[in-house]
Design a protein around this nucleic acid. Structure first.
Lengths: 190, 190
DNA sequence: ACTGTATGCCAACACTCGTTGACTTCGGCG
DNA sequence: CGCCGAAGTCAACGAGTGTTGGCATACAGT
């Protein structure tokens, strides 16, 4: 997101340790229950270090959610595979990167988290929808529909942990959700 | 949920004032940020009253989420209208009752909230799915899929407040989501 | 080796939280 | 009236929070 120019400070190890611990805590507990003290303990350093390097708890959270989320080669896929590819992509993101889990947990009660979540989906899904639709308003609506299904599955599967949702295999999820997303993006408006 | 037998205590007005304020605060702020002191202030009484009548903050929260959510005449509707009726029903619930908003906000970081959310959907959607499907496991999976779409729309529309999602009319939401839900419940497994 | 700066820890501050117990007021009943 | 329990207020406690400043230590440049 922001540039990572490199004065190569000696404290980089500590900085990344804090960031790593913060990612895990925010993703698991949300903003309020993830305490600076717990994050510092996980990182093996003193809580005051967090303040020195990130200014405040809010600043630390901002650093955690300030990451790029890339949707690969969205342009090269056949029209009829858009739904499947998109679902597969987001499943990967959700299982290999804690940022989306963090945003989902924090966004429920924290405006900064909600705002970042809106940014992510506007940046990822909107451009895709705009390729299949003429008006901006229509594209936005379709992107919102796709977001509702993608985020909803993430919610029941990774946050609320509905048994049947967690039991589904990756292939099952793709097979069920891909047609839905495909329709939201490419079907005529009802 | 639990019975509301009536010794008709003189303090009933205070009890309900607390409960009303608690519903609003929990729904707006989630569990951690909704403080007992703020709830008491809204209700116009002393924080110690909350403890007297509900034992603890946790007890108060339990009282808030301990409510019936009724899905009306689910048996009498034609098979092909299941999706539309179900979406319409949940939209009503979300807009006229703060309990689901509370559960969605709190469930993201609080296990009691998540558990209650699972109960609600197991009680509301699972029975519906079981009428169209033979095996229990299949019904559970379909109910989870429906839950993912319903909760996802609630998330983007009422919690994260994606602009395009909040702009959609009730009819638009039903028109777009009904076929999805219909398919999750009645279509053959892919 | 000396010095200045970056790095880290420690103890404390100011504040808010949920919760408690003692005290006062009210309302009905003899 | 006089009583008594219920209803409500008040001040405080103990724990936990984010945050701060002072002090020790390790490192790099000269």
């Amino acid at each position: 997101m922001t540039e990572s120019k490199a004065p190569r400070r000696r404290s980089d190890a500590t900085r990344t340790a804090i960031l790593k611990a913060a990612r895990a805590r925010f993703a698991a507990d949300g903003y309020e229950r993830a305490t600076v003290r717990a994050i510092a303990r996980d990182a093996g350093i003193d809580p005051s270090m967090v303040m020195r390097y990130y200014g405040s708890k809010e600043g630390l959270f901002a650093a955690v959610i300030d990451v790029e989320l890339v949707l690969p080669n969205l342009g090269a896929i056949p029209v009829e595979d858009v739904g499947g590819v998109l679902i597969g992509h987001f499943l990967d993101l959700w299982e290999n990167d804690s940022v989306l889990q963090t945003l989902l947990r924090v966004g429920a009660t924290n405006e900064a988290g909600a705002a970042r979540m809106r940014e992510v989906f506007a940046g990822q899904i909107l451009p895709l929808a705009e390729r299949f639709v003429v008006t901006r308003a229509d594209a936005e609506r379709r992107a919102a529909l796709v977001a509702s299904q993608v985020l909803g599955m993430a919610l029941v599967r990774y946050v609320l942990r509905f048994g049947p949702a967690t039991d589904m295999s990756r292939e099952d999820v793709v097979a069920w959700l891909a047609p839905t997303v495909q329709r939201y993006i490419t079907a005529e408006a009802p």
